[in-house]
């Protein structure tokens, strides 16, 4: 299942991000959102689309390569299937250049996440769980999901605290 939705291989991904980060492309402003904004990437980014920040609506996020991840979580029972873009793809789309990301939720819960988490692990910004669109009432619209079932080192409380749900803003530091 996962294999079908495999993200681009690493060299391709590197080339992609290089292209995205290239100055020629930075000048062409990426498309602005047309629907309600679900996620904003702020801070040190090179591809803003509204003022200094890059806003994403549902369509923009769903247009990115979709990744599926099956894992259990500390807040749900059983194995759940999550779908959404890879966190690093979203950050690359905004041209993020930084070491850390300060993630802020709708309820103002804030946590800092090292950029390394996103490059080393296939962390996704889940927008669907078991095929159902995540709503605000159910940890949506965007939930940071770590592949904890695939990496034992992720099954510690340090990483649990980074599973921020109702994600609204990612500030690149």
């Amino acid at each position: 299942m996962r294999d079908l939705l495999r993200p681009p291989s690493f060299p391709r991904r590197a080339a992609l991000s290089l292209l995205l980060a290239a100055p020629a492309h930075a000048q062409s402003r990426p498309a602005a959102p047309t629907g309600p904004v679900l996620l904003s990437v702020t801070g040190r980014i090179t591809r803003p689309n509204r003022g200094a920040q890059a806003d994403f609506d549902r369509a923009m996020l769903e247009a990115l390569p979709r990744h599926r991840l099956q894992t259990g979580t500390n807040w749900t029972s059983g194995i759940r299937s999550f779908e959404g873009p890879l966190a690093r793809d979203v950050l690359a789309a905004a041209g993020a250049e930084g070491e850390r990301v300060r993630a802020v939720a709708l309820n103002d819960y804030t946590i800092e996440i090292p950029m390394r988490d996103f490059t080393e692990y296939d962390v996704i910004l889940a927008m669907r769980m078991d095929g159902q669109v995540l709503t605000v009432r159910n940890k949506g619209p965007v939930w940071v999901v770590y592949p904890r079932d695939h990496h034992s080192e992720l099954r510690v409380s340090l990483y649990d605290s980074r599973w921020i749900w109702q994600l609204r803003t990612m500030q690149v530091l």
Binding site: T73, W75, T76, S77, L106, N107, T135, V136, R137, N138
Partner: peptide, 20 residues
Amino acid sequence: QLRYDVLLSRMAVLREGRPL
């Protein structure tokens, strides 16, 4: 609506998984 949804979600968390 947003605040109410967030409240519902925060309460719903207690009904699932290990918190439950």
